[in-house]
Nucleic acid binder design. Structure first.
Lengths: 365, 365
DNA sequence: TTGAAAGCGCTAACAA
DNA sequence: TTGTTAGCGCTTTCAA
């Protein structure tokens, strides 16, 4: 009554093929790994038997003697974030191109889980890309000792890193807002454990100071739509005419929540995001944002990791910095000069700029 | 001058620990795999040595005798599609919860690449979730013989499948449009290799016929924003007052392209999408869509796969069907009765419904 | 409670 | 060109 129909019967091994074909196991191995070193007829016979038996080389048997698995791990702080999508895509492309498989691990914005998934996967893979890590520097350094590791979107001494030029991007954003006449800029901050958040806030303060503007900080916030909504509440209490958000999601959430309160973007407030997430083009008003080359970052991280795996010495001294640029769309506009503070709480619609946010306001009342 | 600072020195093995601790390798193994079968003192000593040496069990050594790797592959037709995001998320959650790692493979909408990545990973993993596959049924069945496999979003005889209730979802959409007074519905079709596309189109035709409506098909289209734009061109030539799109991306692209031509949604045309992608809530007008429980699908697929891996007999007879529901938002509205065909090409704005799409129109002229 | 030995699927080194 | 042997890191008998 025993029923093995489940495919539970062991897959055929190299020995099965060898036996049926009447050759030594090593010959079978050679047939697949170095063809040419096997007589054509023999190879042919072996190949036929292999197909017949449904033999497929088992890479894990191969990985033991080789000491490497041709897999790399991509540990990412939050898969849900649209931010992740393009990074994953770029990383996967570079990995596949090199014959590597990608082990994906989601940390769900939790340091604990990040460490868990990292520890589980690190010994299986030849290397690790750690994207937007929330772990402390020391923990990351420890991991980096075990396996080749590259940190993405984070700078850590003695660990090869890839970051975007946040300071320059932030400066561009501030210059843009200054040119539009804004004098006080609020920063809707991200998670405290975020390295990028720290850099962005410091860069904003520096740039603002140099240009004679005022900067203040709201948060920390969840790096999500919900976080943006929370920022709106805070912003209502202490208005600003311009806000730079930790990321696009926060910016979008902020715009929506502001709209629900009758505050229109960009009429009353200008909003700038970070990351240039796909949805940012789609929303109304389209989001002005500091674009990070997400796809390129994933790509570069994996390529550099491969180089390290193959024995290159990472120049851990200073992080590889990828350029970022300001994408100006519709969520920023001239500060209105007819009032000193924006029309918080009023619902009057007038002026030409106002038209372009009319919908959002009327739609949510 | 040889410099091994690269961490290239082999990681410590169970034998290293055994030697230093002065015990047999099997004792070290036991210490970690079945504590309790080792004397407390000995175990303690071994553990201390392990930490000291920085020993970490190598799962690939473990996988050889065990014959399983505690990894599963998720092969997905297109990572770029926001659709994928939530599926991946659900799948990862279920896998992690069971102590499994997830090997992610992107097919980039190419049958060829799909087969490649699948073949590369299939023998490494204990099972495969094949999401939105574009491969022919026969090829999938062949793969399913090699390893436990579950198809997501696709029904294949003799292969365990998980699908959403497309017919019911489509019927809801049609009923909704009929109730709004629409009599001709255009379907903006997806890729020809897409199983879901076939089901959706057939369901639309059936539902339309039963309700005495007319249905026609535009496409095939790329399942992207660009595909939606292409549909807009076609739609201009043969107007309809209502369109159901293969997915949300097509719907969004269509709405945008229509707006660029001065056709407003939902004033002139009502548009319904499929999938309930995140961005659908964010766009203007917010998208009416047939929601698939994407996260639940990823979750269910992995859980069922785990069951099969553990020896359960999959009930391959009929696919597991997850419910879908219609999410009504702002991209659908009553058909305007003051004209027989919509105001294609005109730019007049009037009526209360019109207001809610004013922006899109004015913004893009 | 511990040790010795064999074996998982594969490759590499050496012999024939 | 092919076969034999040893070994990758680990677990699992079987003895002691």
């Amino acid at each position: 009554m025993t029923d093995q129909s489940n495919g539970a019967s062991r897959a055929p091994t190299i020995y099965d093929v060898a036996r049926v074909a009447g050759v030594a196991a090593s010959t079978v191995s050679r047939t697949f790994s170095r063809p040419g070193r096997v007589r054509a007829e023999t190879a042919e016979r072996i190949r036929r038997v292999a197909v017949e038996l449904g033999y497929h080389a088992n890479p894990i048997g191969w990985a033991v003697p080789a000491g490497r698995t041709s897999m790399m791990a991509l540990v990412i702080s939050d898969i849900t974030n649209p931010f992740s999508n393009q990074i994953i895509h770029g990383a996967h492309a570079a990995a596949a191109e090199a014959g590597y498989s990608l082990l994906l691990a989601d940390a769900q914005e939790s340091v604990l889980r990040e460490r868990e998934v990292l520890e589980r996967s690190i010994s299986t893979v030849d290397g690790v890309v750690l994207a937007t890590s929330r772990m402390p520097d020391a923990a990351i350094r420890t991991m980096a000792k075990q396996r080749p590791l590259i940190a993405l979107n984070r700078a850590i001494a003695d660990v090869p890193c890839i970051v975007t030029d946040n300071p320059r991007g932030m400066r561009r954003a501030v210059e843009h807002l200054a040119a539009l006449g804004h004098q006080r800029i609020a920063y809707a901050a991200g998670p405290e454990a975020s390295w990028a958040d720290g850099v962005r806030w410091r860069s904003l303060r520096t740039a603002a100071t140099e240009m004679g503007l005022q900067a203040r900080r709201i948060g920390p916030l969840e790096p999500t739509i919900g976080g943006g909504a929370a920022a709106a509440a805070e912003l209502s209490r202490h208005p600003s005419t311009a806000v730079i958000a930790y990321n696009d999601l926060v910016a979008i959430g902020l715009i929506q929540a502001l709209a629900a309160r009758g505050v229109a973007v960009p009429r009353d407030v200008s909003v700038v995001g970070f990351d240039n997430v796909y949805a940012g083009e789609l929303v109304t008003p389209a989001l002005t944002t500091v674009a990070a080359p997400l796809h390129a970052m994933g790509l570069t991280a994996v390529r550099n990791l491969l180089a390290v795996i193959r024995g290159a010495r990472p120049h851990a001294r200073e992080p590889v910095m990828l350029p970022s640029r300001l994408v100006v769309r519709a969520s920023t506009a001239h500060r209105r000069r007819n009032r000193t503070s924006p029309a918080w709480g009023t619902t009057s619609v007038s002026g030409s700029v106002a038209k372009s946010s009319r919908l959002t306001v009327s739609g949510s009342r």
